[in-house]
Write a protein that binds this DNA or RNA. Sequence first.
DNA 1: CTGTATTCCTATTTGTACAGTAGGATAACT
DNA 2: AGTTATCCTACTGTACAAATAGGAATACAG
Lengths: 130, 130
Amino acid sequence: MLLMLDLATYNTGEPVRLRDVAKRQQISEKYLEQIISLLNKAGFVRSIRGPQGGYMLKNPPEQYTVGMILRQTEGSLAPVVYDDANSNEREFVTARIWTQLEEAINNVVDHITLKDMLEWQEEQINQYII
Amino acid sequence: MLLMLDLATYNTGEPVRLRDVAKRQQISEKYLEQIISLLNKAGFVRSIRGPQGGYMLKNPPEQYTVGMILRQTEGSLAPVVYDDANSNEREFVTARIWTQLEEAINNVVDHITLKDMLEWQEEQINQYII
DNA sequence: CTGTATTCCTATTTGTACAGTAGGATAACT
DNA sequence: AGTTATCCTACTGTACAAATAGGAATACAG
């Protein structure tokens, strides 16, 4: 999440190196490699190898929802993965709760875009200027 | 959760033994002991020791929300525990997302009561009669 | 065409929260 | 007194995300 927000923040047309993201977000570069690999395979970013390489968002920030990103990087967003093989009388009632929760969660994350987050970041910075 | 639902289902005025709950819900009795201990300390159930002992709901099922129960048995319901000590510029934006998620989750679980779950259980049983 | 910077790939380790196990102490009913 | 159940606390197992590690592949720059 912080990775994509960082790419959105530095979305100037020039590729962004993971080393720089790692430094800014205080996350290990090696760990970022694994996250971005998922985002790359999902087609969310464009990668450029070699010197002056790095990553860029493929689309403008308003086209990425938090849900899209989290589903790639964290798998399903359900608090409990509902396993149909185990669907029996006993779990029917709890399954209904998990479904409602999943809907509520998706409803939140699918309505927040990277652009929203950029704006929040702006607000926060303005706070300090006062 | 299944434990409280079981107590609600067999809420006849007679105490319910953990051994029976364990058999019905296919959960180890020893594990149930630890869960019910939390619910007991929270004042949700009444315990009766010795032969013919067991547990009973202290209040009628409509007075227990899923949220109340889960908060006792699973701690905070937030997907990420927001640590004020780590609250810095970097995490401000993500914290805002977690807050929205937490609100959405609470809104779901605080509006489902054990009574609702009992009714769902009924519906499910009726399904098979047709 | 060679050196270097960067992404790319895969295997391993670590941390941690939840689930489950274990053994015995305490209380109360018959 | 003996049995049945709760009560208490410590330990073990497990699954998953977070993090680490080492090196292969690619492409730019000189």
